[in-house]
Design a binder for these strands. Structure first.
Lengths: 228, 228
DNA sequence: CGAAGTACGTACCCACGGTATGTAGGCGCG
DNA sequence: CGCGCCTACATACCGTGGGTACGTACTTCG
């Protein structure tokens, strides 16, 4: 548990009064330490005392900035999600072909999901701590949005015209698949090999999409086609 | 919070002494109440006091049967998982065609995952409360095993020979996809429609597999095929 | 330079998980 | 049949930890 984050000096942000700067810096310190401890020990096993001790402040300061433990967690959650989403966004830039875009996004997501903080805070504890509803709201405007974008472009490439709900469903499915896969990747004995396996599998599924697209298969079909 | 489970009489199990029967019945009562409360309020918001009150016993009894709150949760978890796994098993019986089997399993899973207790206890809180490792161990021998079985039969139908790891990877992906989908189905405004959408999407993906199988596409291919 | 409000610090409460110890009543043994 | 033992609980208690009420110093603005 390093105190490196604490020793950061107060940044000189122009246009902000000294009070605001100090305030922002302690708030930031709290979120930094909280992120570290939540990632290491999980939400339940991380006491507020240990957080404020790590940030060299008191509970008074914490409760001045946050309404409680859960709110602090949510701040951490948002930051981790935002970072992840940005990383994926960056990976998507410059790809116009939907299949390439999907592959790039896939790789980016696989990288992100191997970060301990993302797995622990977003995937593992997020739904339980925030409740599924709140979890979903948060996720909807960040990482899930990226997945949705990829899915849309792939579906568009297949020239399937799906209603919004179905697109969301596809995105949900892929998001869940990737989350679960990422979890198993990072806990695998050899994460590199495991990641390669995931990429192979997803690529294969995408190949299925591609073939279907090119043979002009209709969708939706609630039943399996009788014979192809 | 009904007390119906409490009013159950002590069952007469032949070959067991009265003491054992009473013991088993209080243990069962504890698990029953715990399942109910955990499902309703979640793990963290359910106090042991409320559980023992619901089961009409004291903490002494609880700590006689279980080593702690987490162990009690694990008992509940196992029971919910076992029930789910059994339901899916039943649905798989009588199907020999891999694609039909997959569809049947899919439907069964979609039903199971809409049970509040399964979503809350297994999907939402399971990983956070038990930790991912322990969660995985439990799941590996129940619901995940069912998914793996289905995936194997599908892959076999395609005459792809994959190593164990890759099969597991495919199963992981589908399991995650279904979990996530189920979560969104049960929180959708109209779960029936949402479930139909999920089925459409998965069916479509399976159709991709089928086409690939019939055109004899190779696997693994770490990159997307250049052109089909 | 003084009033006002922000950004904390301090002291305390109580809910809750866990433990240590007491005890009643079935069950085997003679 | 009765006696001791051990199981299956009940009771009383403790420590941790989230949350709160209130006090205070410093900063900003007039």
């Amino acid at each position: 548990m390093s105190k490196s984050s604490v020793s950061k000096l107060v940044p000189r942000v122009p246009g902000a009064t000294r009070r605001q700067q100090y305030s922002a810096s302690t708030k930031r310190a709290l979120v930094d330490v909280a992120e570290e401890l939540f990632t290491e020990n999980g939400y339940a096993s991380t006491s507020l005392d240990s957080i404020v001790a790590g940030a060299d402040v008191t509970k008074g300061a914490l409760y001045h900035h946050f309404s409680g433990k859960q709110a602090l967690f949510e701040s951490v959650f948002e930051r981790v999600e935002d970072d992840a989403s940005r990383a994926i966004q960056d990976a998507l830039k410059g790809h116009r072909d939907p299949w390439e875009k999907a592959t790039a996004g896939l790789r980016a997501f696989l990288t992100v999901v191997q970060e301990a903080r993302y797995r622990r805070i977003v995937i593992q504890e997020g739904p339980a701590v925030l409740g599924y509803e709140r979890y979903r709201e948060q996720e909807e405007r960040s990482t899930f949005a990226n997945v949705l974008e990829i899915v849309r472009s792939v579906l568009e490439a297949g020239e399937w015209e799906l209603d919004e709900d179905l697109q969301q469903t596809f995105a949900r499915i892929f998001f869940g698949a990737m989350s679960s896969a990422g979890e198993s990747v990072s806990s695998a004995p050899d994460p590199i090999v495991a990641a390669a396996n995931v990429e192979t599998a997803i690529t294969f599924i995408l190949a299925g999409f591609r073939v279907l697209a090119e043979s002009g298969v209709e969708l939706p079909a609630s039943e399996l086609p009788e014979e192809v």
